[in-house]
Simulated assay, not measured.
Amino acid sequence: MNATRTGRATVRTGRATVAVAAAVVLSFTSAGFANGATGAVPRDHGEDEITVGIKYDQPGIGLKTPDGTYTGFDVDVATYIAKELGHDPSDIVWKEAKSADRETLLQRGDVDFIAASYSINDERAKKVDFAGPYLLAHQDVLIRADDDSIKQPSDLNNKKLCSVTGSTSAQNVKDKIAPDAQLQEYGGYSECLTGLENGVIDALTTDDSILAGYAAQSQFKDKFKLAGFKMSNENYGIGVQKGSELKAKINTALEKMVADGSWDAAVKKNFGPANYQNEPAPEIGVVVK
């Protein structure tokens, strides 16, 4: 082959290599945008974006609505924090953080921080760091608004008590408070609510903040009430990677949120319809045992 043909072949080969490389880059870029549409954006996203883990299925706390928007107290708290970190709401990429996945999401770097009814405890603190707490919740029960038979925790004896499959809340009641309670485990809280509404069960138990969020839905207006038993302390924290400098920055943001009244406004907005008697904003860095 002469020099001219060799040169042309080299050019063609070079162009082919560039084309393949471009296709690979385009493929990864397209995948990034596709993931972004579902909220699962890789951690090497745009420099202005911030990825936040929330619950998708807890009304009043963290809920992805059918139209693709996000609502709830944790969403409002996370949006405020993101603003204080220099991000507009449009910069936030929301990612579902199921209870069993939260530590993994943080350790793997899939999210920048998590606000997902994430109770601070010693076991979790071995794996991740927590800013906050930003809300003190309690285990409680939700009952029908016209039910006057459950006035104290021991009244749950011989009552049908519902929680979701795998939850420790109902078992805690049976083990420590009302040993004769009849446990009913359903697949989700919505199923428990339907059973409560229809009289198939007598009480639903989990964190009072979660119960208030469900009861605040328009379709359940005036149908349920919180018993106000405060059977445990649940300190909700913002989860970050172990050793992350975000912890201090988020604590500063939370302090500002409380001081300027935004925290109270978010509580009223998300829990007010259920007459939720929330605790005052907790002191940052102080976990109530």
Rank of each mutant, 00 (worst) to 15 (best):
S149A: 14
I150P: 02
K151Y: 06
Q152G: 14
S154H: 14
S154Y: 09
S154N: 12
D155Q: 02
D155L: 06
N157D: 11
N158E: 13
K159V: 09
L161R: 04
L161A: 11
C162A: 12
C162I: 05
T165R: 14
G166I: 04
S167A: 15
T168G: 04
A170P: 12
A170R: 04
Q171N: 09
N172D: 11
N172W: 03
N172G: 11
K174E: 06
K174M: 01
I177C: 03
D180A: 06
Q182E: 13
L183C: 13
Y186G: 04
G187M: 15
G188H: 14
G188T: 15
Y189C: 07
S190A: 10
L193K: 01
L193P: 01
T194E: 07
N198H: 10
N198E: 13
G199M: 03
D202H: 11
T205R: 05
D207K: 13
D207G: 11
D208A: 07
S209P: 11
A212H: 06
A212L: 14
Y214G: 02
Y214V: 08
A215S: 14
A216H: 09
Q217V: 08
S218R: 10
S218T: 11
K221V: 10
D222G: 01
D222V: 03
F224Y: 10
L226M: 04
A227T: 05
G228M: 00
F229G: 13
F229D: 12
K230Q: 11
K230F: 07
K230P: 06
S232P: 14
Y236D: 12
G237M: 11
I238P: 12
G239D: 11
V240E: 03
Q241P: 00
K242L: 10
K242T: 13
E245L: 12
K247I: 08
A248G: 01
K249P: 00
A253D: 08
V258L: 07
V258R: 14
A259F: 09
G261N: 01
S262L: 12
W263F: 12
W263E: 08
A265I: 00
A266Q: 04
K268Y: 07
G272Y: 12
G272F: 11
G272P: 02
P273R: 10
P273N: 10
N275R: 05
Y276A: 05
